[in-house]
């Protein structure tokens, strides 16, 4: 009898979170997926099955924009993986050095951009890099490297990389903090045992600390992946909805926004927009699943 009694307190305690999460996350998500299967003909919404996806991947104009956005998204992600996360790990390693002075100051200073608004970041960097009022050309001039300056945000070949690096600048604090916490949790005894065996300094980092923080690096990678494929704000704040020049900074988020809400004379098409959102969801889902089942389950954990 006792085992069958419903544990009401569990239901009560879970209810607020479940209700709020369902109302603002799960319901909109499934409704968006549903909307992707409809189309509007003469002001009436009609069910069209997978037609929107056929247009998105089959029509050369749509698919070209989609693959361009997806490719840009991968480049955006790659820059973060190659620049943001190694720098984050490096900063964490330096910060966790016991003899570093003003560690708390550096930690806060590097973390501060993370809490700034995208709009501020986008606007500030646009001004910094501006060929007209910016300090970037003058600073390069001061060290005699003026020839290196280019109007980066206006050139097809540099704009996306520039924005990715701005984003790295903003978010490098997150991997730094997570790795820093992981490094602090490594017990002294382990390191001391290593020292007795003659492993010190850089060797201690590569041979002892790095393997122990691998799970954290995995988590950071997946957070970076999800964050980058959902990115929108920075590109929108810096380059606008057209993600110029010539769509070179167009990522899935801006492509979706433009399609869903329309732009200038282009009227919004919520159904095609939802189809793009559904494709984004699929891509992120596949990425997360690959990580969870391919990497996470094989990762070894150490208990101290």
């Amino acid at each position: 009898m006792n085992g069958k009694r419903i544990k009401w307190h569990i239901v009560v305690f879970l209810a607020p979170a479940v209700l709020v999460y369902t109302a603002i996350m799960i319901f909109p998500l499934f409704n968006t997926l549903r909307l992707a299967l409809y189309s509007e003909v003469d002001q009436v919404r009609v069910f069209t099955g997978l037609d929107n996806f056929r247009t998105l991947f089959g029509d050369p104009r749509w698919s070209e924009s989609f693959w361009n956005a997806l490719g840009n998204n991968f480049w955006f992600f790659l820059i973060h993986m190659l620049v943001q996360n190694p720098i984050g790990i490096l900063l964490a390693a330096i910060l966790s050095h016991p003899r570093l002075r003003f560690a708390a100051l550096y930690r806060s200073a590097i973390f501060v951009p993370t809490i700034l608004s995208f709009v501020i970041i986008g606007f500030a960097w646009k001004l910094i890099l501006s060929p007209i009022w910016g300090i970037a050309p003058d600073m390069l001039d001061a060290i005699g490297l003026k020839f290196l300056y280019a109007p980066w945000l206006g050139k097809e070949e540099y704009a996306l990389t520039t924005l990715a690096l701005v984003s790295v600048w903003q978010f490098v604090g997150i991997p730094m903090m997570l790795i820093y916490a992981a490094l602090l949790s490594i017990p002294e005894e382990v390191l001391e045992a290593g020292e007795i065996d003659g492993i010190t300094g850089a060797a201690a980092f590569w041979k002892i600390k790095l393997p122990l923080i691998l799970p954290s690096i995995g988590i950071i990678s997946i957070l970076t992946f999800v964050g980058n494929f959902n990115a929108f704000d920075l590109i929108y704040a810096a380059q606008g909805a057209l993600a110029g020049p010539d769509f070179s900074t167009d990522i899935l988020g801006t492509f979706m926004y433009r399609t869903f809400f329309g732009f200038q004379l282009q009227l919004g098409d919520p159904h095609m927009g939802s189809a793009i959102a559904a494709a984004m969801f699929g891509i992120i889902l596949i990425g997360v699943c690959l990580y969870l089942f391919g990497i996470q389950t094989r990762m070894r954990r150490y208990q101290f």
Binding site: K126, L129, S130, P131, I132, W133, P137, A150, P151, W152, L153, G154, K155, P245
Partner: peptide
């Protein structure tokens, strides 16, 4: 057009 016109925005042009 001015140097770096590729990254020059509409308000930039007005101000210039």
């Amino acid at each position: 057009l001015g140097d770096g016109y590729e990254a020059q925005t509409y308000p930039d042009s007005q101000n210039i």
